[in-house]
């Protein structure tokens, strides 16, 4: 019996040490959420800014006490949606190619190369976008594009940045479709394209949607690359895709260094942070919802 005791205490040590690690992580996340909420809500509770006018106001001029975050919200959503529209066909096409058309080349050569794109730092994409995409905008649209900075440029750079994420996750999604489905379809005389279109894509739909949403999460939170190519100093509503704009994240980067701790401006920036946090939680909730629905469908 005496020999068993150390084993039990060993087990307890393991449980305690690893449990502490996870508790620490959870504690940090809770601290973060509480702190962001506290500072972000202070704008409304302490400084008396009206929540409704914060959300719907059309001018973001913090130094004049005008806190209308709508242009930023519109900016964030338009670059996110637009970049998803650009990236999705390419990512999905690549994923179909890798899984259905040429798995050998796709897995050994294409996928590792695409994953390299994930590693390229955000600032490098920004520098690249500034000198290539913005110049291209000027060349294509001439006067109308101004300096080339705008929502469209931001969306193009973001599309390249989320491409690897969406591609990799789509490959996993298509890969998870059981082979029997494909064989059944081929046995009925369907072509490869018919099989992909009617069988594979349909049954992979929930996971594909998850892939898209994770891509959008990344686009929504991306900061420095967007700031460099979108202009990022605008304060009023963008009127077109070629208009320079600002997003929630870019307003944070450009504003945080000038605001003093505790001021209304500072709290308003945290309110933007709170909006970003809330959006992340919404994205997570949607992913969970899709997962649950998919699980129910499969039985």
């Amino acid at each position: 019996m005496a020999k068993l005791m150390p084993k039990r205490s060993l087990e307890n040590v393991g449980l305690t040490v690893t449990g502490l690690c996870i508790a620490l992580v959870a504690l940090v996340v809770v601290t973060l959420i509480v702190m962001v909420a506290q500072q972000g809500l202070a704008t409304f509770l302490q400084d008396g800014v009206d929540f409704w006018s914060f959300i719907s106001g059309g001018n973001w001029i913090p130094e004049d006490g005008r806190f209308g975050a709508l242009p930023l919200i519109v900016g964030s959503f338009s670059v996110t949606l637009l970049s998803t529209v650009f990236a999705l066909p390419v990512a999905l096409g690549s994923a179909i190619f890798v899984v259905e058309v040429a798995p050998g080349f796709g897995r050994r050569v294409f996928q590792p190369l695409v994953e390299l794109l994930v590693g390229i730092p955000s600032v490098v994409y920004g520098v690249l976008g500034l000198s290539v995409v913005n110049a291209a905008m000027r060349a294509i649209f001439g006067e109308a594009a101004g300096t080339g900075a705008g929502i469209l440029s931001g969306a193009i750079v973001l599309a390249v940045m989320i491409l690897p994420t969406v591609t990799t996750l789509s490959i996993d999604a298509l890969d998870a479709v059981p082979n029997e489905y494909r064989e059944g379809s081929y046995a009925l005389g369907c072509t490869r394209w018919q099989t992909v279109w009617h069988v594979v894509l349909k049954s992979a739909l929930p996971s594909l949607m998850t892939a898209v949403i994770l891509g959008m999460t990344r686009a929504f939170g991306e900061t420095l690359a967007v700031q460099m190519v979108i202009g990022g100093v605008e304060r009023s509503m963008p009127t077109g895709l070629l208009d320079p704009a600002a997003t929630l994240t870019t307003a944070l980067t450009s504003g945080l260094s000038n605001a003093t701790t505790g001021s209304v401006q500072y709290h308003a920036l945290w309110s933007l942070g709170l909006l970003l946090l809330a959006m992340s939680l919404v994205f997570i909730a949607v992913i969970h919802l899709i997962g649950k629905k998919g699980a129910k469908k499969r039985g």
Partner: peptide, 13 residues
């Protein structure tokens, strides 16, 4: 949550 948080929010925190 931590993984989907924008890095600027982490920086701000």
């Amino acid at each position: 949550t931590l993984s989907s948080l924008p890095s600027i929010v982490v920086g701000m925190f």
